[in-house]
């Protein structure tokens, strides 16, 4: 990294700093939703429902995708392009599987008669929060897809490894966000 020009500068690459700040805004977005959720959770109309266990399977899939990403990235750092290719492809596929799993999960909810519209706020929030996470995840998939494409064409060089690392941070953050969401939603159904 660059030696800083003044002692007070932040020792992070500017783009990495931008990414972390962006993640802070995303955190505030979901903090806003979470506080709304908590406010309504204590109203007299609040009802709970049981989250289909498929969502926990999805959680495992998404966690695994973070592991494969990390494995691939380690390969890249050791200069092993095949490991990077494999890792990224695995991450991409697991991400797509996760999204498909989410859609299936929503369908299961619909079959059980839990709709977005209506007065069952726990369900409404569940759709809104998981849906918004899915939107973010699509952005993450585009980033991972881009780097998979580059890796398959052996175009990931030292310059590119910054972008690769940032895509990784974003992917891990989406993973962390999902874990937070599912735990938050589940805990509020149990309590």
């Amino acid at each position: 990294m660059a030696t800083s020009l003044t002692r007070t500068q932040v020792r992070l690459h500017p783009k990495e700093l931008i990414l972390w700040l962006y993640l802070a805004t995303t955190a505030m977005l979901f903090a806003g939703f979470s506080s709304a959720y908590l406010v309504q959770r204590f109203s007299e109309y609040w009802k709970t429902f049981s989250i289909p266990s498929l969502f926990w399977l999805n959680t495992a899939i998404l966690l695994l995708s973070s592991v494969t990403w990390h494995w691939g990235y380690q390969g890249h750092r050791r200069g092993n392009p095949w490991q990077l290719q494999l890792g990224l492809m695995a991450t991409l596929s697991l991400g797509v599987i996760f999204l498909i799993g989410q859609v299936m999960g929503w369908q299961m909810l619909v079959k059980q008669g839990f709709f977005l519209a209506g007065n069952h706020k726990a369900v409404s929030y569940f759709y809104v929060l998981t849906g918004l996470h899915a939107v973010h995840l699509v952005a993450g998939l585009i980033a991972v897809g881009y780097w998979t494409y580059k890796a398959l064409r052996y175009q990931v060089d030292a310059q590119g490894s910054l972008g690769l690392r940032l895509a990784g941070i974003f992917w891990h953050a989406l993973d962390g966000l999902w874990v937070y969401l599912i735990v938050f939603l589940q805990v509020n159904q149990l309590l």
Partner: peptide, 13 residues
């Protein structure tokens, strides 16, 4: 950065 996202949450709801 800290105050706009909750407003966006409010607008989405």
């Amino acid at each position: 950065l800290l105050s706009f996202p909750p407003a966006v949450a409010a607008f989405i709801l």
